[in-house]
Amino acid sequence: MGLYVLSGLLSPLILRGPYNQWQKCNEFFELSLSWPDRDFRHEYRMGRTTFDRLVHMLEKNPIFESTGTKPQRPVCFQLACFLLRYGILGANPMQATHKLGIGFGTVFLYCRRVVRALRELGLKVVRWGNEERHQEIARAQWLLFYVPEEISCIKCSSHR
Rank of each mutant, 00 (worst) to 15 (best):
Y19R: 10
I151M: 13
R85K: 13
K99N: 12
F104M: 01
I137M: 14
F28L: 06
R160V: 06
I88V: 10
E132M: 09
G105W: 01
L33G: 01
L100C: 05
R16G: 09
S66Y: 02
R133Q: 14
T67P: 02
L123S: 11
C153S: 13
G90I: 02
E59N: 08
E150C: 09
N130A: 09
P71G: 01
L58M: 06
V75W: 05
D52K: 13
Y4W: 07
R127W: 06
P71N: 08
R53D: 14
Q23H: 08
R116V: 05
D52W: 00
L3M: 13
G103A: 10
M57P: 03
I151P: 01
S152C: 11
Y44M: 02
L33S: 03
R16C: 07
V114R: 03
K155S: 15
K70G: 00
R85S: 01
C156D: 13
F82E: 03
Q78P: 04
L33E: 14
K99A: 12
F64E: 02
L31R: 15
W35D: 08
N26T: 11
F64P: 00
F82D: 02
F29R: 06
Q21W: 08
Y19E: 11
R113N: 04
C25S: 13
Y4C: 12
Q78E: 07
R113S: 00
F51N: 00
D39K: 15
D39A: 14
L54H: 03
L6Y: 10
R53N: 15
